[in-house]
Design a protein around this nucleic acid. Structure first.
Length: 284
DNA sequence: TCCTATGTTGTATG
DNA sequence: ACATACAACATAGG
């Protein structure tokens, strides 16, 4: 159930495989996660390839490999975790699981245990996606990702214009649009709106310049803090943000706003379950 | 049985 | 062409 920071956290799960060769590839070509790529190409080009580096952007991860051919063709392996996708490293000898869709086996020399390891992508709901491209240039599915909300390209003007174009949509729905708010998902959107003291059902066209400025600033702040607290964490599971965040209270029965201590409210807004603090976030 | 789930996309309608 | 709303995708758990 990953958003920006959790994706960054999960990306690092495959770090033990960096610098090592892929010996064999096992995949389930009929799985929905391969809908947007050619599993036969993966099976052909990944064996013998070396995993060189990885990065995350929005809710996507990119793993860069170098093929074993004479031309040392760059390989681009993209993974989107959807709702239930996971990455893990598994020592050889343990059984595959039902929802393991892509398994990259690395030889014994690659693992601390000395028995070899597998880089595993699993996703039982299969809303996740595997993308693959071979060639010198980055593929469109990677270069087309909008500039990060933590980058200088995420400007106040860009946000203002985006809201203006979607004047009749509720704020909540628009914050989930990846073409302007890459990596923001359901919990981050609620967190941002709570911090900006904006009701999630407010129409985008109704905001004052000061409110837009606040929304812009809180978007970048929440993303930055989440990346620091969650994305960079060393723990075996990704940590939750602190109790001072809305996050910790949004699913609690009888949950209360960490700032006003008044009851929180929940409803479907923009097609998603949304939590807000009525004492802080007013409609009018 | 019915409802929910930290996501995206295709389709219908305005 | 663009904006908006929502069903559909697939599975597990309360």
């Amino acid at each position: 159930m990953p958003e920006l920071a959790e994706v960054e956290y999960v990306r690092r799960r495959w770090n033990p495989g960096l610098g090592h060769t892929i010996a064999t590839v096992r995949l389930h070509p009929r799985a929905g996660v391969f809908k947007t790529c050619d599993p036969a190409l993966l099976a052909k080009l990944l064996p013998g390839a070396r995993l060189d580096s990885s990065e995350a952007a929005a809710k996507q991860m990119l793993f860069r490999l170098v093929a074993a051919d004479r031309a040392r063709t760059p390989l681009w392996l993209g993974i989107h975790l959807g709702m239930t996708g996971e990455l893990l490293v598994r020592p050889h000898g343990l059984p595959d699981q039902k929802a393991d869709h892509l398994i990259l086996d690395q030889p014994a020399a690659s693992s601390a245990s000395g028995v070899g390891q597998s880089l595993v992508f699993s996703d039982f709901r299969m809303f996740g996606r595997v993308q693959f491209h071979a060639g010198p240039d980055a593929p469109a599915w990677w270069t087309g990702i909008a500039p990060a909300v933590t980058s200088p390209a995420f400007t106040l003007d860009a946000v203002s214009e985006f809201l203006r174009r979607r004047a009749r949509s509720p704020l909540k729905a628009v914050l989930l649009m990846q073409e302007r708010f890459p990596g923001i998902g359901n919990w981050m959107a609620d967190e941002i709106l709570w911090r900006a003291a904006l009701h999630p059902a407010r129409r985008c066209g109704d905001l004052s310049p000061a409110e837009i400025k606040k929304l812009h600033a809180e978007t970048a702040w929440v993303a930055r803090e989440a990346l620091r607290l969650i994305g960079a964490a060393d723990t075996p599971q990704w940590p939750d943000p602190p109790k001072t965040w809305l996050f910790q209270h949004r699913w609690e029965d009888g949950g209360r706003c960490p700032r006003t201590k008044k009851p929180l409210e929940r409803a479907t807004i923009g097609g998603r379950t949304t939590c807000w603090s009525p004492a802080r976030q007013k409609l009018a």
